[in-house]
């Protein structure tokens, strides 16, 4: 099998960029740089998704991962801090050990996985083809991903929509749409109860 095809070189190039960006995220201490590199990471992943024929996913990742989540993280960063305090080296050995062991275990399992781009792997040869064939005669819309998303896996999508809704509710409860959640204090008879409690405590 010849590996030096343009597609392979493109894949390896994009993955190499991803590795560099991920290592930079770990090493850096400026939160602004970290957050922006996270956006870069999402954008490069989106580019690789296009190369992997997942155009819908690439679209979503570029819009959500590189756009919205970067804006959100920048907003959270502005409300909190700009710098990461350095972590002493002695407290990084245990995480490194765990990560290396986990990575080794996963590398050990690689041999059982299907070859990259294998059309005869179980997932690609059976269920995926079935959905494509069924869409041709049952749903009759060109985009198979939309057909599976909205029709065959409608329950899943309903669940995801509810999760997004609940997440929005959580945000509204935690921060408030006008930024005033958690600021309200009960004042029976005009007394600031929380203030009294604070004085008692001190």
């Amino acid at each position: 099998m010849n590996f030096l095809t343009p597609a392979f070189i493109l894949d390896v190039g994009l993955l190499a960029m991803l590795v560099v960006v991920a290592f930079a995220v770990v090493r850096l201490r400026s939160l602004f740089a970290i957050v922006m590199l996270q956006g870069v990471y999402s954008l490069i992943s989106a580019a690789w998704f296009v190369s992997l024929d997942a155009v819908d996913v690439a679209f979503t990742e570029a819009a959500v991962g590189a756009g919205i989540s970067t804006v959100l993280m920048l907003g959270a960063m502005l409300l909190t801090e700009r710098e990461v305090k350095p972590v002493p080296m002695r407290r990084q050995w245990a995480p490194l050990f765990i990560v290396v062991i986990t990575g080794m275990a996963m590398f050990y399992a690689i041999g059982d996985m299907p070859v990259f781009g294998d059309p005869n792997s179980i997932a690609n040869a059976t269920l995926g083809v079935e959905y494509v064939e069924a869409t041709k005669s049952q749903i009759i819309i060109p985009n198979v991903v939309s057909a599976v998303l909205a029709s065959y896996r409608g329950y899943d999508t309903f669940g995801e929509t509810v999760v997004v809704f609940v997440a929005g509710l959580g945000i509204v409860l935690l921060l408030g749409l006008n930024g005033n959640a958690g600021k309200w204090r009960a004042k029976p008879n005009g007394q600031d109860v929380s203030q009294i409690g604070a004085e008692d405590a001190s």
Binding site: I68, V71, L72, G75, A76, L78, L79, V164, F165, A167, G168, I171, V172, L174, L175, G176, L177, N178, G179, N180, K183, R185, D192, S194, Q195, A198
Partner: peptide, 23 residues
Amino acid sequence: VILAIFYAFGSRGGSRRGSHSPN
């Protein structure tokens, strides 16, 4: 939901300082 998230984060800072904050 995306707009709600953005509004929540965007308007959090403005009303915090100077207002009544017992903590």
